[in-house]
C-alpha cells in the first residue's frame, strides 16, 4: 500500500526505522564485568528468546523486560503507557501467558519464549486478531493496540483452556465465551480512546472463526 510504503520511506530518510537491530552494536559502553561498590550499574548477561529469535544481551539488572524489548532490541510495538502495571499497553506473551512486560525484569525471563506484537504478524502477513481489529476499528490512536491484541489472543486461549474468571457463573462447568467474559478478562488493558465496544466485536469474530 503506497501510504504505508511512503511513511516507511519518510521515516528512513530521517532515522532508521524501529525494526532494525543494527543499534545493538552502538549501545553505550556502560558494560562492567561485575557490580562495582562505587555505585556503578550491576550488569549481567541474559539470553532472551523473542519471537523465536535468541538475543544475548549484557544488561543493567534494573532493566524491565519492556525496556529491554524497546530500547535494546528495538521492538517498539510493546508500548510504555504507565511503567507501573496499570494500563496493559506493554502486554506480551511469555510461554503463551500474557504478562505486563513493565512488571518483570529482563533477567527474570531467561529461557522463556517471549512473543511480542511483532511476533504475531506483520503488515504484510497479519494475525487474524490484527485483521479483526482493523475490520472492526478496534483502536483509534493505536497506542494501547498491541497490548490489547496480545491480551486478546491470550484471553481466547484462557477461555478455551477452561480457566475461569471473576464473572464465570459456574466453576463446575466449562467456561464459555461471552461478552461478559471478554470484558472482564480484558479489563487490564485500558483504551482511553474508548474502542472497547469494537474490540469485543473483533475478539468475538476471531473466537467464532476459531470455533
Amino acid at each position: 500500500m503506497p501510504i504505508l510504503h511512503d511513511l516507511e520511506l519518510n521515516r528512513r530518510d530521517l532515522m532508521v526505522g524501529g525494526g532494525t537491530l543494527a543499534a545493538l552494536t552502538a549501545v553505550p559502553a556502560v558494560v562492567q564485568a561485575q557490580p562495582s561498590p562505587a555505585g556503578a550499574p550491576a550488569l549481567t548477561k541474559v539470553s532472551l528468546t523473542v519471537n523465536g529469535q535468541s538475543h544475548d544481551l549484557e544488561i543493567d539488572i534494573r532493566t524491565t523486560l519492556l525496556d529491554a524489548l524497546r530500547e535494546r532490541l528495538h521492538l517498539t510495538g510493546s508500548k510504555k503507557g504507565c511503567d507501573h502495571g496499570q494500563c496493559g499497553a506493554c502486554t506480551v506473551l511469555i510461554d503463551g501467558r500474557r504478562v505486563n512486560s513493565c512488571l518483570t525484569l529482563a533477567i527474570m525471563n531467561e529461557g522463556m519464549e517471549i512473543t511480542t506484537i511483532e511476533g504475531l504478524g506483520t503488515p504484510e502477513n497479519l494475525h487474524p486478531m490484527q485483521e479483526a481489529f482493523i475490520k472492526h476499528d478496534g483502536y483509534q490512536c493505536g497506542y494501547c493496540t498491541p497490548g490489547q491484541i496480545c491480551s486478546g489472543v491470550a484471553v481466547l486461549g484462557e477461555i478455551k483452556a477452561g480457566i475461569p474468571s471473576h464473572v464465570t457463573p459456574d466453576l463446575t462447568q466449562p467456561v464459555t465465551l461471552s461478552d461478559a467474559e471478554i470484558r472482564e478478562r480484558m479489563s487490564g488493558n485500558i483504551c482511553r480512546c474508548g474502542a472497547y465496544s469494537n474490540i469485543v466485536e473483533a475478539m468475538t469474530e476471531v473466537a467464532g472463526r476459531q470455533g
Binding site: 500500500m1 532494525t20 504478524g121
Partner: peptide
C-alpha cells in the same frame, strides 16, 4: 491500520538512529 496493529507505527519515543 496495518502499522498500528502490528506495532510498526513509530511514536515519539521510538525513533532509533544507530
Amino acid at each position: 491500520g496495518p502499522l498500528k496493529v502490528t506495532g510498526a507505527a513509530t511514536y515519539a519515543y521510538e525513533w532509533h538512529d544507530p
